[in-house]
């Protein structure tokens, strides 16, 4: 099938299609990519990368909930150096744009990681994870304070030669405030949502289920809220948006696109269906052919009313 209709540019990154891996569930891609066809994924967003290796949280780290799951992996990763030296070369054969999700405890750590990666070839862009709920410092704290989000984004932009995506936390009262802070600081793109802070309790042990007490909720359970937030953010900023949160079909991917996402990312759905990227791709193509739409761009934000200044969408109650 001819798929030029899904080709696109996201903040300067050329993509074969708008389907990205969400950072984390897909690891470094080394497990899923060999199972997939070339061209199924538009870009690879690798798991959260810190400067030093991180052990992550004690088990149990995952717990299933209705139509969703909690995770408290806690950013286990091998650190930026090992990623660049050992993992990145193995990804070359897939010929995909690679976006590195960066997680720091402090602004200086983010800067150190970007400085390191600036010297490494074959990286298409950075995604600043200011929204991880599973670490004590940094992570979500950056994502809930617009001033810190602004400063962090601005400082990274000063040293980065690559597109900078800021990944927003949904654990805020008003997503538009942070979205606008990131845009004002020069972010090339925003992605949302990360997981919702959540928990479960074991009624036999009368203790929290997760080793870390709280974790992040992902999967179809969060989709309507994630969609609402993408819609609100799209109404509030002009930079492109990567929409995610519970996407598990081409129909749900399309909802995010219609709400204003230029690209979409899939995480949890890979666990059940490693072939999900291809299904979304083919579904979108069939939809476009059926409706005689020649470019996906025409669908981006098509459900939005005229963008309003300030962009805050209220509810009736």
């Amino acid at each position: 099938m001819h798929d030029s209709s899904l080709e696109m540019t996201l903040s300067g990154i050329r993509l074969n299609n708008p389907i990205l891996s969400a950072s984390g569930p897909f690891g470094y891609g080394l497990e899923y990519l060999p199972l997939m066809n070339k061209g199924d994924l538009g870009a690879l967003v690798v798991t959260g990368t810190t400067f030093e290796p991180r052990p992550g949280n004690p088990p149990p780290r995952i717990h299933e909930t209705p139509a969703g799951m909690l995770n408290a992996v806690g950013l286990e990763n091998c650190g930026v150096e090992q990623f660049a030296k050992e993992i990145l070369p193995k990804l070359a054969e897939y010929n995909l744009p690679i976006i590195v999700n960066i997680a720091g405890k402090t602004i200086d750590e983010y800067i150190k990681i970007v400085e390191y990666l600036e010297k490494v070839p074959n990286i298409a862009g950075y995604e600043l994870n200011i929204s991880c709920p599973n670490v004590e410092q940094g992570g979500m704290a950056f994502g809930t304070d617009p001033d810190i989000a602004y400063t962090l984004t601005e400082r990274v932009k000063q040293i980065s030669t690559k597109p900078v995506i800021v990944k927003l936390s949904p654990n805020v009262t008003d997503i538009t405030v942070i979205a606008q802070a990131a845009e004002a600081a020069g972010a090339d793109c925003i992605s949302l949502v990360n997981t919702f802070l959540a928990m479960a309790i074991d009624i036999e042990k009368q203790r929290p289920v997760l080793g870390n007490v709280v974790g992040g909720l992902s999967g179809p359970a969060i989709r309507p809220i994630a969609l609402r937030m993408v819609w609100q953010a799209a109404s509030a900023v002009d930079i492109p948006i990567i929409g995610m949160g519970g996407i598990d079909s081409w129909e749900s991917a399309l909802e995010f696109i219609l709400a204003g996402a230029t690209a979409v990312a899939v995480g949890t759905a890979f666990f059940t269906n490693p072939g999900i990227a291809q299904e979304i791709k083919q579904g979108l193509q069939a939809y476009m052919e059926k409706n005689m739409i020649d470019s996906l761009e025409k669908l981006v934000g098509a459900a939005l009313p005229q963008k309003t200044v300030g962009g805050c969408i209220g509810t009736d109650d």
Partner: peptide, 20 residues
């Protein structure tokens, strides 16, 4: 969750690695 080594959800402690 994934069963193939991607999600890091299933880890335990062994002598093979300092971490999980």
């Amino acid at each position: 969750a994934c069963g193939i080594g991607a999600c890091l959800g299933c880890t335990c402690k062994t002598t093979r690695h300092i971490h999980y």
